[in-house]
Structure formats: C-alpha cells, structure tokens
Write a protein that binds this DNA or RNA. Structure first.
Length: 574
RNA sequence: CGGGGUGUAGCUCAGCCUGGUAGAGCACUGUCUUCGGGAGGCAGGGGUCGUGAGUUCAAAUCUCGCCAUCCCGACCA
C-alpha cells in the first residue's frame, strides 16, 4: 500500500476526552473516531487491525469445532418475554423500540434468546449434539457509563458462542475446550492474561470463568496466589478460627461525634480489626422486619456487594437504607448502629463472627458497646462470606497468600445449564425417544475490547507497538528525499514490490509534503513493527537502514538482503 | 442513576472574573523556499461562542433551564 493513496489521519495533539493509553493512541493514530459517546467509526488503518484480531479468534474457534453463524442485531421482544428477561434484564442496557406495527424489538445486547430459538427449531435429536455455534457480531448495550474508548463502548464487536448438550458431562467437555481455545487466542495475541473464577452475573448459570488481560487501566481487580485466581467480586475469604478469649462484661461507652470506624477505633484506642460495622440494606420484600436486613463486617473490611446479592431476602442490586430508614429501624443514625438487640435479620461475615470482646454501635447516637460477644449478646444471626478479600489474605485453596492485580475482562465463559433452554423449551429426543431439555454453555469474547487491551500492553511514549500478528502493516518503507534522488525512489519502489510479492504487508510512505521527521513520527505512532529507511546516505554504501519498533534497535542491511531478512523476521512472528 | 468537571474554528486551547466589532498554535487551500526526527515566508478559507429563555442600550462574558461530553462510584465482552 502506498501512503499517498491511503488515509492516514494522525493527530499531533492528545484529544481532550481521552485518558487511557489505548484510547489516546487509537484517536491519535487515526484508528477510530467517536461519533457519539461509546460509539465509534473505524478508519482504514484501525479496521485492518480489527480484522486481524477477528481472524485469529475465528481461526481458533473454527479449530475448536465451533460452527460460525450470524444472527440479527435486531431481536423481537417476544423471545425475551419467553426467557423472562424482557422486563428483568437491566433496563438501562436494553434498547427497546417498536416497528411500524407497534411490535416490540430490541437491539441485541447478547444472543441467548435468538440462539435458543434457532437451536430448538434445528436441533431435534441427541445425535446432533453436542454442537457449538458462534458469531462475530456487533452488540449494542446502552452502558450507563461508556468510558476509556474501546474498553467500554456501547456498540462493540463480540464473538459469542453457544453450545448445546444432552448432558452435563458433554457441557463440561466443551467448556474445557473453550477454556483452552481462549487461552490459545490470547497466547497468539501475545497477551499477558489470567483466567479467573468469576461470578456469573445477570446472564446466569453455574461454572464461570473470566479471562483478564493484565493492565493497570483494567476495571476489575483480580486476586490470585500461585494456584488460585478469582475476580475480587468472587474471591472467597477463608474462615478464620474463632477467638477463644474469656468474655468481658459488655459495657456502654459514650463516643461523642464518632461515626466512622476509624474515628471510633482511635477514640477507644483499639484496632479497627477489633470493631464491627453494621450496614443496613433493603430487603426484597416488606414483610421481613421493616423491609431491612443487617450485614455485619469487621471494621477494617469492605462489603462485597456481589456476594451479598446472593443472600436470600436482599434486594438486588444491593441498596443501602437511607438515614431516615436506618434511624426508624434502629433508633440511631448510621455510625452508631450495631447488631445487639437490633431486631433485623442479621448476616455476619466470617471474620466478624470470629471476634470476641469486640466494639460495635449501641443503636443509640454517639454510644458504642465494648466487650461484645456473639451468642451471649447477639443470640440469633447467620454467618456468611460477605467481604472483599484483601491482599495478604490466605488463599482459599490453602496455597500461599493472595496478591491483587488489575485486569481487563476480554472473555467470559459460562455453563448456563437449562436457564434458557428450559423456559424456551429447547429439547431434543434422547435415545429412548424421550424429550430432554438441552444443557447450554455460553462463551463471550470482546473483539474490539481486545484491540484496546493489546494496546494497553503494547505501547510506549512514541505510540503503538503492535505485535506482528495484528499489526496494520508489517513493514514501512520511508524514502528520504525521493523527489531529488531517482535512485532512492527506485530502490524504495523496488523493495516495496518485492516485499509485497513475498507476501509481506508493506506501507510505502511516498507522501509528498511530509518531511522525514513527520514520517518517522507517524510510523512510530502507528506502531508498524519493522521500518526501512531508504536514503542516499545508506545507498552510497549499498545499505538500507532497518529499525525495529519494539526493541528500538537498528542496523544496516545490505540492499540485496533486505527482502530475505524481512520475510524471515515477519514470518517467524506471525 | 448519584457526585464533579467541561462545552469558543477540524484538533489543542486563550478570551469570561471586570459585558462594548471573536483570537492563537496546529491542521486545511494557493505559492515560494526547504527536505535524515512533527520546516519557514507570503496570501487565504473556516466559528449564529452547545442550546433555549432571561437581565441589559449591548451577552462568548451575568442568571436560570435543557442538551452533549468527560472523570469518580453501582453493571459488563
């Protein structure tokens, strides 16, 4: 490709609405342009990369035995009524509209309903199973907060696969195949990543793992030890040994103006780990004790809302009671609430439940209790895992301690079971001629998100540094003063033709009106792995200057060796 | 959806506090010089100052509403 005939839309300045590296670089290098919040155009240079990422995903999915289909972006509301998600799926995310006949439709945020409809019509016999169908499609989710460019867009490209099975063991098998396939895709993209245990969220189901590309800009925190890795929202806390200190008498103390754990702890000169905090949460119905429940955590711990949402009787998403409701239920304002004589259903985190002689609010403003003990002072309560693990916690599998890293979720695999096949009556006949509801698995991978995730790991202060396998071009040729030197023009053009003939993707920067400095800067910004500079200087010695974008190293190559060497380098790397 | 910030030329921003003929750099067009790390001169084109009200003789500037957009929190590939 000749640059003079291509669209290179680089920006010298950083667009004001971008903060993370991938977003800034995608805009500056002219890969994408925003058309509305979370909605982007892809320019030619960016589209080349997107297509390459897509191709790798497709190759590995095909190799796994999955079959590619394409489903519509627009989906009938009826199907969502059938699965029960029309009114239940996060209202904000689902964009609904009517056609001219006033029938309900939505823009597909995901395709479980459509695929299940497809499967129940096409799959009739157990002999057709298992089958794994996938597509690479544009999704639309009206995210509450699109951000970071491609990392959280509203319109994005996703690879989603759905598998159908007669029984659980078959589902397990495909689930494992998808796990391996995802690992292969991320390996080929040269990404540093982790597969972690995950909560299955609103899509539902049993087993579930996320694939995270490690990056400081990641929105998720993952907790891991040598042999365990989980999303923070899923990571289990270990159950500590109960303390066995002799119970002290329960004592009421005045704590004027002390509301936060830190204030109370330093006022009473105790460690925050000796205190307990009590959060008042709305229940999912009004008849359980004023419609509220209490969650009790050790003072230094944080509530894990995902874990809490799994408790029976709580509103989801978790909603905190407001100050007036707290006061009405406990007789005190938040900050002075505690589990003693509370009169609400009380869930206590393991770590808080292990304490003895602890400090808590007295349900009376500006008063706390010390020497509080479970059983004696709080006879009725239930113990559960409610908190976020913290760095240094024992790993739940007993192997070492947990450390944290941030990750970008690029893939998520689920075992759905019969969550959709059951309400939508997707059955096949088994070998006894009996109708059996199919088991389903579902496997998502964010393709556009992957493009950004790669950039988060592959950039430097000059711009993008693409791994060869997804680079928009493999080689860029920059002729110096070609307008003056017929020799330079001829050699550059000759190399260009020969490299193309060798199957290398070459960009020849033959743009008039751009001086060498500008071309160098563009080449580095766009992140083309190999750069050849053709100038009189080198030609007089019979060499071409070569520079590697990733290592920054350069060397002189004899003109005659260039095609062989480049072909070798590029092919060994893709 | 809660909290905060920002809307002036294609991009980055100044002007607003203290109301009085809309600016700079980059980009773009023409032209000359230049050509190994984002060149320089000359001549140009381009903005109903997000939007709607209000105050005023007069509003980019002051007031209120709305919209858009970005950032921090709850959701997801």
């Amino acid at each position: 490709m000749k640059a003079s005939q291509y669209l290179i839309s680089t920006l010298k300045e950083v667009p004001s609405d971008a903060e993370v590296a991938s977003h800034i670089l995608l805009l500056r290098a002219g890969f994408i342009r925003k058309i509305a919040s979370g909605i982007y155009n892809w320019l030619p240079m960016g589209f080349r990369v997107l297509k390459k990422v897509e191709a790798i995903v497709r190759e590995e999915m095909d190799a796994s035995g999955a079959l590619e289909v394409i489903m519509p972006v627009v989906q009938p509301g009826e199907l969502w009524e059938e699965s029960g998600r029309w009114g239940k799926y996060d209202e904000g995310l689902l964009v609904k509209f009517n056609d001219r006949h006033q029938r309900d439709f939505c823009l597909g945020p995901t395709h479980e309903e459509v695929i299940t409809e497809l499967a129940r019509n096409e799959l009739r016999s157990h002999r057709q199973l298992p089958v794994n169908l996938y597509q690479i499609q544009t999704k639309f989710r009206d995210e509450t907060r699109p951000r970071f460019g491609l990392l959280r867009a509203r319109e994005f490209v996703m690879k989603d696969a759905y598998s159908f099975h007669l029984d659980e063991s078959s589902l397990d098998e495909t689930y494992q195949v998808m796990h391996d396939t995802y690992s292969r895709i991320l390996d080929r993209l040269k990404l540093e990543y982790r597969a972690v245990l995950a909560d299955s969220g609103s899509i539902g189901g049993n087993a579930s793992m996320e694939f995270h590309v490690l990056a400081d800009s990641g929105e998720d925190v993952i907790a891991f030890s040598s042999s365990y890795a989980a999303n923070l929202e899923k990571a289990e806390s270990i159950i500590p040994e109960a303390e066995t200190a002799d119970p002290l008498p329960r004592t009421q103390v005045d704590t004027p103006g002390m509301h936060t754990i830190n204030e109370v702890a330093s006022f009473l000169k105790v460690d925050a780990t000796r205190t307990v905090k009590t959060l008042i949460i709305k229940a999912d119905n009004e008849d359980s004790g004023l419609g509220l429940v209490a969650l009790v955590l050790r003072g230094d711990h944080q509530l894990n809302e995902v874990k809490a949402a799994h408790l029976p009787g709580l509103s989801t998403p978790i909603t905190f009671a407001n100050d007036a409701e707290v006061h009405a239920a406990t007789g005190a304002d938040p900050g002075s609430v505690g589990p003693v004589d509370l009169g609400l259903t009380c869930y206590v985190d393991h770590s808080a439940a292990a304490l003895s002689n602890f400090v808590c609010g007295a349900n009376q403003n500006d008063v706390h209790l010390t020497g509080v003990n479970w059983q004696r002072d709080v006879p009725a309560y239930q113990v559960a895992d409610l908190r976020n693990v913290v760095e240094g916690d024992e790993s739940p599998d007993g192997q070492g301690k947990l450390t944290f890293k941030r990750g970008i979720e690029v893939g998520h695999i689920f075992q759905l079971g019969k969550k959709y096949s059951d309400p939508m009556k997707a059955t096949v006949l088994d070998d006894n001629g009996k109708a059996v509801t199919m088991m389903m698995g579902c496997y998502g991978m964010g393709v556009t998100r992957l493009v950004a995730a790669i950039l988060e790991q592959y950039h430097d202060n000059r711009g993008m540094v693409w791994p060869t396998i997804v680079a928009p071009f493999h080689v860029i040729i920059i002729p110096i003063n070609a307008h003056k030197s017929p020799e330079v023009a001829k050699v550059a053009d000759d190399l260009y033709r020969k490299l193309e003939a060798a199957g290398i993707e070459v960009l020849l920067d033959d743009r008039d009106g751009h001086r060498p400095g500008a071309k160098f800067a563009d080449a580095e910004l766009i992140g083309i792995p190999h750069r050849l500079v053709v100038g009189d200087r080198g030609l007089s010695d019979g060499v071409i200057e070569y520079a590697n974008r990733s290592s920054g190293e350069s060397e002189h190559l004899p003109v005659g060796d260039v095609v062989t060497r480049l072909t070798e380098w590029v092919n060994s790397d893709r």
